[in-house]
Computed example of a mutant assay.
Amino acid sequence: MHSLVSSGGELTPEQLAAAARATGLDFIATTEHNTAETHAAWGPQAGDDLLVILGQEVTTGTGHWLALGIDPGQVVDWRYRVRDNVIGDHLAQVRRAGGLCVAAHPHAPYPSGVFMYPYRDFDVVEVWNGRWSSDLPWNADNESALAEWGRSLATGLDDGQWRPAMGNSDAHLEGQLGTPHTVVLADELSTEAILSGIRAGRTWIAESAAIDLSLEVCAGPRRAGIGERLDTCGEPVSVRVAVQGVPAGTVTFHTDRGRARREPLPAGGVLEWVTSAGESAFVRVEVRHPSGHMAALTNPVTLT
């Protein structure tokens, strides 16, 4: 998210913190374009009920990326393009600070917004960006990013190098914050715990705080959740998804074979599906409104 320091931003850190609390967010990440100017302003805005993660949106000539969890006052260089072959040095700088590197809005509709760097260099891929679709928080650019990421999962899971998906509001204006946002399955509200959860893919993406979702897979007594791996021991796998806050729509189950199953969202919001590790290398879920716009989506559960 961006304050008035960033191009196109209109809100102060105080206004953004108030909006985060009103929206029901537990944490936010401040990512001004190519500056750490507001880092010092965020200390008074944080509290036990709101974690502020310091970051930067690194706006290079051939794509933007997010440096999350950097040191106070740290600025990451942005003056290069993919042909300069220096991106690895700057990613390493962020990781040395304990930070996370996110490929941002890979299909953004403006010059320099289209992401040209290899995903393999990054920790996470942003598949849902809310800035350019404030009226409807899902658009063709997000659809393209999701499809590209989804196709990469099968090979990435095989070698243990898959990149989790995340969603961000990329808020610049009033009313954008939290649409969408990333829900992290973490044990505590700390920068380390949140970034670890994102890095591990223990996350799902929500259109708003009104939506709740859970995904669990079971094989006999063994269970796993989003971002985890389940050793099935050759037994059938029961996949259970529960959704709240979406009045109507569809749930789709996706595997390494693509969309494997599509069901109407039932009144109780609970669906079950049976598969196996032989049929499905992983399972992830999408929940869509009747219009086809996304309501929520998960990272995968890996089956072995």
Score class of each variant (00 low, 15 high):
Met166Ile: 13
Gly167Gln: 02
Ala277Asp: 13
Arg163Phe: 00
Trp273Tyr: 15
Asp135Ala: 15
Asp141Val: 06
Ala260Asp: 12
Asp187Val: 08
Ala219Lys: 06
Gly178Asp: 05
Ile226Phe: 03
Gly227Ala: 11
Gly225Gln: 02
Glu207Cys: 07
Cys233Pro: 00
Leu213Lys: 04
Asn142His: 06
Ala277His: 06
Met166Trp: 10
Glu272Ser: 15
Gly234Arg: 10
Asp187Tyr: 05
Trp138Glu: 03
Ala209Tyr: 05
Ser238Gln: 14
Leu265His: 08
Ser190Tyr: 08
Glu235Ser: 10
Thr250Cys: 05
Gly167Met: 09
Gly201Arg: 04
Asp170Met: 09
Arg257Phe: 03
Val251Tyr: 03
Leu213Asn: 03
Pro137Lys: 05
Arg261His: 14
Val246Tyr: 09
Val246Ser: 04
Gly245Phe: 10
Arg223His: 13
Phe253His: 08
Ser214Arg: 12
Glu174Trp: 09
Ala165Leu: 03
Val217Gln: 00
Cys233Asn: 12
Pro137Ile: 11
Gly175Phe: 07
Leu173Met: 07
Ala200Asn: 07
Thr191Trp: 05
Leu213Met: 14
Glu235Trp: 08
Pro137Gly: 05
Leu213Phe: 15
Leu189Val: 09
Thr232Val: 13
Gly258Pro: 11
Leu146His: 07
Glu272Gln: 14
Arg199Val: 08
Asp212Gln: 13
Thr275Glu: 10
Thr250Pro: 01
Gly249Phe: 11
Trp204Lys: 04
Asn168Leu: 10
Ala224Lys: 00
Ser190Pro: 07
Leu136Cys: 09
Ser196Trp: 03
Pro264Ser: 13
Thr252Ser: 15
Gly167Ala: 11
Pro236Thr: 10
Arg151Ala: 03
Ala267Thr: 13
Glu216Gln: 12
Ser152Asn: 06
Val246Lys: 08
Asp141Ala: 14
Ala267Asp: 13
Gly178Lys: 10
Gly197Ala: 11
Ala147Thr: 12
Asp212Lys: 07
Arg199Lys: 15
Ser238Cys: 12
Arg262Ser: 13
Pro236Asp: 04
His254Ala: 07
Glu148Asp: 15
Ile211Ser: 06
Asp231Tyr: 08
Gly225Ile: 02
Thr191Asp: 06
Glu143Pro: 01
Ile205Cys: 09
Trp162Met: 01
Leu230Tyr: 00
Ala186Gln: 06
Val239Cys: 11
Thr275Leu: 10
Ala206Phe: 01
Glu272Leu: 04
Leu136Arg: 12
Leu157Asn: 05
Asp135Val: 14
Gly156Ala: 04
Cys218Trp: 02
Thr275Arg: 04
Ala219Pro: 09
Arg222Asp: 15
Pro266Ala: 11
Pro264Tyr: 05
Ser152Met: 06
Gly220Ile: 08
Val184Ser: 05
Ala171Trp: 06
Glu188Val: 06
His172Arg: 07
Gly227Thr: 07
Thr179Ser: 12
Val243Phe: 04
Asp212Ile: 02
Val241Ile: 14
Glu148Leu: 09
Asp231Ile: 05
Val241Asp: 04
Trp162Cys: 01
Asp159Asn: 15
Ser196Gln: 13
Gly269Leu: 09
Gly167Lys: 01
